[in-house]
Design a protein around this nucleic acid. Structure first.
Length: 776
DNA sequence: TGCCCGGGTGTTTTT
DNA sequence: CACCCGGGCA
């Protein structure tokens, strides 16, 4: 033993057993909040302390962020020098790295491109068009999903075409050319030297399957394998682990079947059951003591998950305090729900002195965030939204990355199409179309077709095309040798992209410019990290590309983002914890989603999702639902989610009955039909009832229920400023954008337009007669 | 070639 | 409602 083993102190006995069991296959079933991360990190540290070389440890996590945090924690135990050598990351990032090393085996360029979802969809769309098919029948998104699930189940295009069941399915659904699309898509990816997300796993399987020496090499390198969130692995990932672990069988998987929430993208709880079959001698460990939540939360969550048939039995318990009952709030509208939650957070923060980063609002779909954003903004409560459009999905970022990608891999078709005429350089649609057709006819990549412009009838663009080619080649020449930041900056400049953005002086344009600067700063940081595999010893720009393709929003934890309320989907909250959690939108057809009502399996996944939501919380969970909500622009009526009733009543505080016709209310349940008629028939009585049902704590002072009136009705219209009262310099308040200042006025009455700067959302141009502003 | 407008369409969840 | 796409026009 190299150092003292004090890190083992403070583990409970189940944790201790799991940490110190070193050899042989093992599965850790870890209940929510049971110290799973701690077990994993201490176990890794323990292995190293017992003399295992960190290079021989492979640890696969669900997100890059989880990997980073785990590495930091291991470093704290055994020191950074050792910790940094562990192979730790997501399946995608680890195997992208290995595929890069082994690329020539599968005839891919070393700097293969990684297509993100929108690249994949774009390519599929092109293929559908080229095949003369109707993209209303073959919707690119759906086609992509189907292909994706094939790849995750290791079904190649050939397998697909030979699979009568799949082919028949397509036939009955009127999509008989699906197999062909898949084959074309795969071929085009290959020609472009590109892999999509699923390929990173698929091709790894191919590599390990077809090249025994490669398999052998990695089997011996990864003597110890750990897999986190095992319940969310798909078949393709399962097969990778199975192959890599076959020699040493030191495979440690950690998961919780109750938290499996990614079946929709191919995750398979069956992997946990298969584990027993593959390794009959495996050792099972169960972590059942929850350290995170109150008894109420733990027991409420247990009472929910018991309703599922597919589950591995376990008994999660806690010695924490009892805690408060779970409050359920019935909101009249989605906006009312937003205000209620924002006010509750405001009040609670005052009462408890908790900081804002201890609060989270969790919802089923991203589209629900709006009402909460508005309400929080009204109360000046800072918040942060996870998910949504990621930084890396922004146009200006994708544009610059496309230059990098094309420099690294000239055959990257999606990148080439994106930037060949951006900034505008006189290579128009006609020219590009001719090139695309020419490439198709000759079976060449777009890049290889560019010099043939003359024979394709695009001769007039020939010299501009040549300039473009020369430029990209010059970038390529410096890819590995030049400092990543310098080169990135050089590309941003000489491509004309920075200049293009700089000339746009609108606030949006300025923001885009700043985003690009931010990306460049990120590259600077990255370029200062050591990388032994790179010729310069530091990370190159192509290393950056490999990394950036697999980054998500969640990985961008800015340090300045503390002290904000977190808003995210329940999926995004996996693995996180917050003392105070609001789970919102608990309505039938929303949560559970209407897509999930058709089968028991789907419904059970929704229930697990609810289980995940509840168990994120430490001190308190509050639930809410709205009687009416705008969905795709239309007012819809909702009923309370069945999940509310499924919680053992001992742990919940339901809202007071709302209806004045108690006879209509079935015992024990929450009746909704009465509420609906009351709401739509008689707004007055609803308002009265609504006050009655306000929870005991009551809203904090200053809380005005502005949104209880029937939606769409003009509210407080007398309060709005008249256009003639607004002048340059006026401070105004806008319903949506918050506080702002008028910077210009334009036009003549009654069509006066005002430029207003809103600190929260930037510069906006508004027509005063419509803008419903308040003067401050 | 680029902008503006109208229509159509879409909501699960994401590495 | 909000976004995206395509068509038409300057």
């Amino acid at each position: 033993m190299k150092t003292d083993a004090s890190y083992l102190n403070g583990l409970n006995s189940a944790q201790y057993e799991a940490v110190t069991y070193m050899h042989g296959p093992m599965m850790i079933i870890a209940g929510a909040g049971s110290g799973k991360t701690r077990v994993l990190t201490v176990r890794a540290a323990h292995l190293i302390n017992q003399g295992i070389d960190p290079f021989n440890i492979l640890a696969l996590t669900f997100t890059n962020k989880a990997a980073r945090e785990m590495k930091e924690r291991i470093a704290r135990i055994i020191g950074e020098e050792e910790a940094k050598n562990i192979w730790m990351g997501t399946f995608h990032s680890i195997f992208a790295r290995i595929l890069r090393i082994e690329s020539e085996r599968i005839n891919y360029p070393r700097n293969f491109s990684i297509y993100d979802t929108s690249d994949s969809r774009g390519l599929i769309k092109d293929i559908i068009r080229e095949m003369g098919l109707d993209d209303k029948i073959y919707k690119p998104g759906m086609v992509h999903n189907r292909i994706s699930s094939c790849k995750n189940n290791l079904i190649s295009p050939q397998d697909y075409a030979n699979d009568t069941e799949l082919v028949n399915e397509d036939h009955t659904s009127g999509k008989s050319r699906m197999a062909e699309i898949y084959a074309n898509y795969d071929l085009r990816l290959f020609k472009a030297g590109a892999m999509d997300f699923d390929d990173l796993l698929f091709k790894t399987n191919v590599l390990l399957r077809d090249f025994p020496d490669v398999l052998h090499k990695y089997q011996h390198r990864f003597m110890f394998i750990m897999v986190d969130e095992y319940q969310d692995t798909n078949f393709s990932q399962y097969m990778i682990i199975k192959q890599l672990g076959a020699v040493h069988e030191n495979v440690c998987v950690v998961g919780d079947d109750a938290q499996s929430i990614y079946a929709f993208r191919g995750a398979n709880i069956q992997n946990m059951l298969n584990f027993r079959k593959d390794y009959p001698e495996y050792e099972l460990f169960k972590l059942e003591q929850n350290y995170r939540s109150t008894k109420t939360i733990v027991q409420a969550a247990n009472s929910i998950i018991e309703k599922n048939k597919d589950r591995i039995k376990k008994d999660v318990w806690t010695s924490n305090e009892e805690g408060e009952r779970i409050q359920v709030y019935r909101a009249t509208t989605d906006n009312d729900e937003g205000m209620y939650v924002a006010n509750q957070i405001f009040a609670r923060q005052r009462e408890t002195g908790a900081t804002l980063d201890q609060f989270a609002i969790l919802y089923r779909t991203n589209a629900q965030s709006r009402a909460f954003e508005e309400a929080l903004r009204k109360l000046n409560i800072p918040y942060r939204i996870y998910g949504g459009t990621s930084f890396y999905q922004r146009k200006e970022i994708k544009d610059l990355l496309a230059y990098f990608r094309l420099a690294a891999n000239h055959h990257d078709e999606e990148s080439l199409k994106r930037i060949i005429n951006y900034p505008a350089r006189g290579i128009g649609k006609t020219t590009l179309d001719r090139i695309i057709v020419g490439a198709q006819e000759r079976g060449l990549s777009l890049w290889d077709t560019l010099p043939l412009a003359g024979e394709l009838g695009a001769g007039s663009a020939a010299s501009r095309l040549q300039d473009f080619v020369m430029m990209i080649r010059s970038f390529h020449a410096e890819l590995e040798s030049r400092n990543a930041y310098d080169l990135a900056h050089h590309i941003a400049n000489s491509s004309g992209l920075l200049k293009e953005l700089y000339t746009d002086r609108t606030p949006e344009g300025v923001a885009r410019y700043e985003n690009v600067q931010e990306l460049l700063n990120g590259i600077k940081e990255f370029s200062e990290l050591e990388n032994p595999l790179s010729p310069t010893g530091l990370n190159s720009l192509s290393d950056f590309l490999l990394d950036v393709a697999l980054l998500t929003d969640a990985d961008n934890e800015d340090e300045g983002e503390r002290e904000k309320v977190s808003l995210m989907t329940i999926h995004a909250s996996k693995g996180l914890e917050f003392p105070y959690v609001n789970v919102v939108g608990l309505e039938e057809n929303l949560f559970p989603s209407q897509m999930a009502l058709h089968s028991r399996e789907d419904l059970e996944e929704e229930r697990r999702l609810f289980y995940v939501a509840l168990t994120r919380a430490g001190k308190d969970v509050s639930l809410s639902y709205a009687l009416t909500r705008y969905r795709w622009g239309q007012l819809t009526y909702g009923e309370p989610s069945r999940f509310i009733e499924e919680i053992d009543p001992r742990y919940v505080q339901l809202p007071a009955p709302e209806s004045r016709t108690p006879s209509a209310r079935p015992a024990g349940g929450i009746d909704f039909r009465a509420a609906r008629t009351a709401f739509s028939g008689s707004p007055q009585s609803t308002a009265a009832d609504e006050q009655k049902s306000t929870p005991a704590e009551g809203p904090p002072a200053g809380f005005k229920k502005v949104s209880t009136a029937s939606p769409g009705a003009a509210q407080l219209s007398g309060d709005f400023a008249r256009p003639e009262d607004i002048e340059v310099g006026s401070e105004v308040m806008h319903e949506k954008f918050g506080k702002g200042k008028v910077t210009h006025l334009d036009g003549v009455a009654p069509d006066i337009k005002a430029m207003i700067f809103f600190p929260s959302s930037g510069q906006k141009q508004l027509l005063l007669k419509f803008a419903r502003l308040r003067l401050l």
